[in-house]
């Protein structure tokens, strides 16, 4: 077991003929992901690394039975690509595209409400179930299968943590990058809920950062609803207020969204909060093999 992505995942790559789409299609195929189709309007009939290309997602789904999509199209077309996939009833849409206008995402989130489509991202590294499939841009070789679920707002910071876990001999059930934008398809709480119900996952690592209040909401959920232990890290303790630290969502606004505030909320919910990245594998190991209990 795992969450979101497994051996039933049949992937369509939207924007497959672009530079990143082509490169990561090859990487995902090499990892063992069932990449069954690609979509680039006007390039239907071509092939990319042996994967058939279609003009529309609907055609791709009809011909190949794709049930998940990954999006590499430029930011201005990302909202349209997400809606196209949802309209074709693709169950999981992972949007890698960076720089999507926030109000596009406001409309997309509203449009997806009540649909059968779950969106992860945008501006995210995707989802990987080690040893099974990767629907994302993360380097596959740093992951190994195991009992730790990882959820993060960051991309490369997640790789850093996963790499450290793997080096310490600790494998992962599924790693989910939810993205660094202010408005996202899937938040921490959504993923925590999935991990709580996943038999393979024993411990969850949550990697947050400054800005917004998703970590605080996660803390509330962990305190009231989770039995599995959670280890957390929050990036941006040295960030000044009012400056956007790269991610559109990573900004301390009017004293809200600070790393300290988030760490405090998580600690109060019974989460083991790492001060330094290097502490994470040790904190996870202490919690593996322990019986679950309420985080309160």
């Amino acid at each position: 077991m795992a969450i979101l992505v497994d051996h039933h995942t049949r992937l369509v790559v939207q924007g497959i003929t672009g530079r990143e789409g082509t490169f990561h299609t090859q990487q995902m195929l090499a990892y063992g992901t069932q990449v069954v189709a690609g979509v680039t309007p006007g390039k239907g009939g071509q092939q990319v690394h042996g994967v058939p290309v279609f003009d529309t997602v609907r055609q791709a789904v009809a011909e190949t039975g794709a049930n998940a999509s990954i999006i590499f199209v430029p930011a201005r077309g990302a909202a349209d690509a997400i809606l196209e996939a949802a309209d074709a009833e693709v169950a999981l849409v992972v949007c890698i595209s960076e720089g999507v206008p926030t109000l596009d995402m406001v409309r997309v989130r509203r449009a997806l409400r009540g649909s059968g489509t779950r969106l992860v991202g945008p501006n995210c590294p995707g989802v990987i179930t080690p040893g099974v499939a990767k629907v994302g841009i993360m380097p596959g070789h740093i992951h190994v299968p195991g009992p730790v679920g990882v959820v993060s707002r960051s991309g490369t910071l997640t790789y850093e943590v996963v790499y450290a876990l793997t080096q310490a001999g600790i494998g992962q059930s599924t790693c989910v990058g939810i993205g660094g934008d202010p408005v996202l398809g899937t938040g921490f709480v959504d993923v925590l809920e999935l991990f709580e119900d996943d038999p393979q996952t024993e411990v969850v690592v949550l990697i947050g950062e400054i800005g917004g209040s998703d970590e605080e909401r996660a803390a509330t959920f962990i305190h009231s609803r989770m039995r599995k232990p959670v280890v957390a890290f929050v990036a941006g303790r040295s960030a000044p207020a009012g400056k956007r630290m790269g991610h559109a969502g990573a900004i301390i606004d009017g004293g809200a969204g600070t790393a300290e505030g988030k760490m405090e909320a998580l600690r109060a919910a019974g989460v083991a909060v790492a001060e330094m990245l290097g502490e994470i594998p040790g904190l996870v190991r202490e919690r593996l093999g322990q019986p679950g209990g309420p985080n309160s």
């Binding site: 990143e20 890290f233 990036a235 303790r237 040295s238 630290m245």
Partner: peptide, 29 residues
Amino acid sequence: NGAGLAMATLDAVKALGGMPANFLDVGGG
């Protein structure tokens, strides 16, 4: 590369007694 890792790198520099001169994320790709 990556905003989260950049923040964590700055945090590490500061925690180890240094002071970062800047935040710089070169972005994806």
